[in-house]
Nucleic acid binder design. Structure first.
Lengths: 122, 122
DNA sequence: GCAACACTTAACATGATGGTTAACTGTAGC
DNA sequence: GCTACAGTTAACCATCATGTTAAGTGTTGC
């Protein structure tokens, strides 16, 4: 359907991994796993100022990891469900690629040593 | 055995995700999926200088994503097989946590609407 | 030994990141 | 309307990241 459906751009991954490369932001994501929360709730566990939290949220939002809402004077943050997928997919692909390669290498070595058992290593 | 075996510290993840938050470094990792390579080989596809590549490799090494070797005057880089696991695990945990939560939410809502079908929303 | 090669290290410029405090915006509630 | 509350924006600062070029290190090969 969409011609650019698989277009997982390098920039998206930059933003995603970049957003996750900070323990405060990861903790916020973990916290949001328990459900929507307000900024003050999210800020509570951390020893940093509200503006700092506010910017972390902006980074997460920019990476499309969270969406924001407004209830009265409270502003909520919640996870966008499939947003981690691109990162997880990239990692899975890499792991698959190199385990495949290691398997092939094992096969190759097994074959080699089976075919030429007397070959010595200098 | 090791008392700190499961101690996947926040710093490790900082380094891991940080290392992956750059498209050049991700490309290098992808490239290394095909096997060990020298610095010049790794540098070839990129329009940046060798020192820049050298430092990217140092970042990857520091994040324990690659190991380095020396063959004569060539210096090789190769992937360390399980190094992506902490990142993949963290992502998997998050995805599991929040899909669980969404499931519980669904159940809850289904139960609620089943039990109190006439309840209106103000 | 010495020149060429394959890098790495050093020194530097520049822009991004993560934190601060102070001031601003917008909603709630009397 | 005014005050308090929840949060964002602005201005600033220190540090880190990423690139550059120039110089240094160590190995090869004649």
């Amino acid at each position: 359907m969409l011609s650019v459906a698989i277009e997982r751009s390098a920039e998206d991954l930059d933003l995603l991994f970049g957003a996750l490369a900070d323990s405060t932001r990861r903790a916020i994501v973990e916290r949001l796993g328990a459900g929507e929360a307000t900024v003050t709730e999210l800020a509570a566990p951390f020893p940093i100022s509200l503006p700092a939290i506010s910017r972390h949220l902006k980074v997460l939002e920019h990476a499309k990891l969270i969406t924001r809402s407004q209830h009265g004077r409270w502003r909520g943050a919640r996870l966008s469900p499939t947003s981690l997928a691109p990162a997880a997919t990239w990692l899975a692909q890499q792991e698959q690629l190199w385990t495949e390669r290691l398997d092939r290498l094992d096969d190759h070595l097994a074959q080699r040593t089976a075919a030429e058992p007397k070959r010595g290593r200098p």
